[in-house]
Design a protein around this nucleic acid. Structure first.
Lengths: 396, 396
DNA sequence: CGTCTTTGTCCTGGGTGTGGAGAAAGTTGG
DNA sequence: CCAACTTTCTCCACACCCAGGACAAAGACG
């Protein structure tokens, strides 16, 4: 099959493509209501898009009281690939042009095995999705990596937890392998874009998306656009100090947030609690599995284990303390919490909220929802698809 | 004299006006080099601007190797008023259209005396400037207040240190009194805009501007634009907690940054040190003046007083701790420190830098200048003038 | 003083968008 | 089943805008 070759020729066409992506199939008349173009101009631009094959006619729309309008939709055979490289696992998904997930694979893998091994795995997963008939090829791919990225070039820079990736030309390499345009970003930014597109952050202009997984990061959205900072490391809140002379962190400092609370820190604390006999629930689980994860703590807490609840509460306080500061500084309209620890759910949320509402000023917290992400592991891959579609659906 | 009535009719004209504002008088040919318009189109737009009187011809430019070009400049009789209401003083200045300060007045006054008294004072100062022949009237005014502002309406919202100002229609009232367009913003944002326009932050897209005066606030600039947050309280970092169970703060919480270090806190600490006999220098000054200010601490430190130096160092550490967190989060390209305490100078700067460079990751700090603002008290008024000129020099 | 470069002005031709007229396609109510 | 009204779509004429060429003006340079 021939893949997408055309690109929108002007801002109007780009606008139309995004409307169709975000709003699904739409009648010409409805499009006209949204874009402030004369009827003639709109007809011309739509016709041109039809010619390029980016959009197709899709039957007749329901009548609005007069002649029925023709429906327009994005070409149904367009396919985007969304890749989310986590610290310990890989998610790969195929979406259509409306960014609906058609197929999703997850595979445990340690990012420290290096870019070559990880790429091999990603390509195998992409091939598997293709083989299952979901796609005959990809029109674009977005990929998220767990570390800072020089965004324009799509290259990781000085990533702390990804030895071997520094300077690796992710964008270039993946583009070669897949034969389609590729964009690279930080995984946290993609999660934010995912929640913005299809999750809790729809229609919020300025928000924060805190991802607590193996590490801790924060996606920052300003006026609907991801903010990446001067060197691409914005949102790197895992190494904010929460305790003077606190625990030693892998980064060389002491008292970093990540050292005190994160997927990794929580697992270690849980194992300590189990070994020291403070928690029968956790001890039993440690006995059974040989090691503990955030999910075990969540389960123990659900079973009423006091030590597990304490761990969650204390972690929530720590994160809440940092978020409170960020809320004062950034004054967001929403705070989304996601990542591996969302399993800790409302216990975690409650202590975060307590901390934030207590420490920040009423003007900033007055109407500030603090919620869990609603997309879970698909947030990242949807965000990745959104990233590349934003790129492709922009004027050439 | 007739004041500015016209506004740029389109984006091109707005662009030209801003170029003339930021770059001073310019030849038509030089303008052409900067705007990517055809010669004919440029000529038309410039002619229209000349017709409106917003710009005037200004002699011949130096030759660039051929026929000499005609110079163009903003109308020399245009005047903006910049007002900066601080917690304890008022600054008012007149600028020309290029935002050069032509006259500047400063008057001590407590903002808590309320909007009516303050406005009376501001109008008196404006009248004085006008009477001195610097202006026959004002084409626009910008005003900064020490608290959060609902920006579109120009109304303070829930300002902690400005009782009586909540909901007062600052924009509307001042516009009535002066008979010209007015824009209102937080004083910290204006300082950021001032340093961006004429100070250390020229040509930096993303930066932070920390103002340490009676309180502490932070201007946030993203992509050259001031970021104000969802409710206008972004940058309100004075109430970030720096010490669990620390000093009681006026806001009702404990351990706020402002309670531990700010102009007010520093003065109190200095008086304590003087009374407790820890500092002969400060004691002498307290004896002489009856009370102490940040300036006294600066002077004592310059004289080598150990207690004063300690106060500055400790304060710098506190602020540095918070800034380190913000740097990790925001990844700015520059941090500017200004406000009343800039007199503490390099002692303060040194301890802030130490803290930031130690606590934040190298990728964020690698090329991060942390500097003092270079405009001092004029930053605010220049920023105010810039605010209104940005508004007026935008398409109607 | 002649030639070259730069700048400013005029003009024309092409492209583009607006909005009206009218046809096509449906709905609604009698 | 028909008439009147709505909505949608297409076609077209007109106005507008703008790019770029031609040319004149003004100065630099040798």
């Amino acid at each position: 099959m021939r893949r997408m070759t055309a690109r929108p020729a002007n801002a109007h066409q780009a606008r139309l493509l995004r409307l169709l992506r975000d709003g699904g199939p739409n009648s010409r008349a409805q499009l006209g209501d949204q874009v402030d173009l004369s009827r003639s101009k709109l007809a011309v631009e739509v016709d041109r898009l039809l010619e390029t094959g980016l959009v197709v006619a899709d039957g007749l729309a329901a009548s609005r009281g007069g002649r029925r309008s023709h429906n327009i939709r994005l070409a149904p055979e367009l396919r985007f690939l969304g890749v989310d490289i986590g610290a310990t696992s890989i998610d790969v998904a195929v979406t259509n042009a409306e960014l609906e997930v058609l197929g999703h694979l997850n595979q445990p893998m340690d990012v420290r095995e290096g870019p070559v091994a990880v790429f091999e795995q990603v390509l195998a997963m992409a091939a598997k999705l293709r083989a299952s008939g979901l796609a005959e090829g990809f029109d674009g791919a977005g990929i998220g990596v767990p570390g800072p990225v020089r965004f324009p070039e799509g290259v990781p820079v000085a990533p702390p937890i990804m030895p071997g990736w520094d300077g690796f030309p992710v964008r270039e390499a993946l583009s070669q392998d897949l034969g389609c345009p590729v964009m690279v970003d930080n995984d946290v930014n993609l999660m934010a874009m995912g929640e913005q597109h299809a999750g809790v952050a729809r229609s919020v202009g300025d928000f924060l998306c805190v991802k607590i997984g193996t590490g801790i990061g924060c996606g920052i959205v300003v006026g609907g656009e991801v903010y990446r900072g001067t060197t691409g490391s914005a949102g790197d809140i895992g190494h904010i100090q929460v305790e003077p002379d606190g625990r030693a962190c892998a980064c060389g400092n002491k008292g970093c947030l990540e050292a005190h609370f994160s997927g990794a820190a929580l697992a270690r604390d849980a194992e300590d609690a189990a070994r020291e006999g403070r928690s029968p629930e956790l001890a039993a689980r440690l006995e059974a599995a040989g090691r503990l994860t955030a999910a075990d703590v969540a389960a123990a807490a659900a079973a009423g284990d006091a030590a597990a609840l304490d761990l969650i509460r204390e972690g929530g306080n720590r994160v809440g303390q940092v978020i409170a500061g960020l809320v004062s500084f950034f004054n967001p309209g929403l705070v989304v919490i996601g990542g591996g620890v969302t399993g800790l759910g409302h216990n975690l949320l409650a202590s975060v909220r307590t901390q934030v509402y207590r420490q920040s000023l009423p003007l900033a917290t007055g109407n500030l929802p603090i919620v869990l992400g609603e997309l879970g592991p698909t947030a990242g891959v949807i965000g990745a698809a959104r990233l590349i579609s934003d790129h492709l659906f922009s004027p050439a």
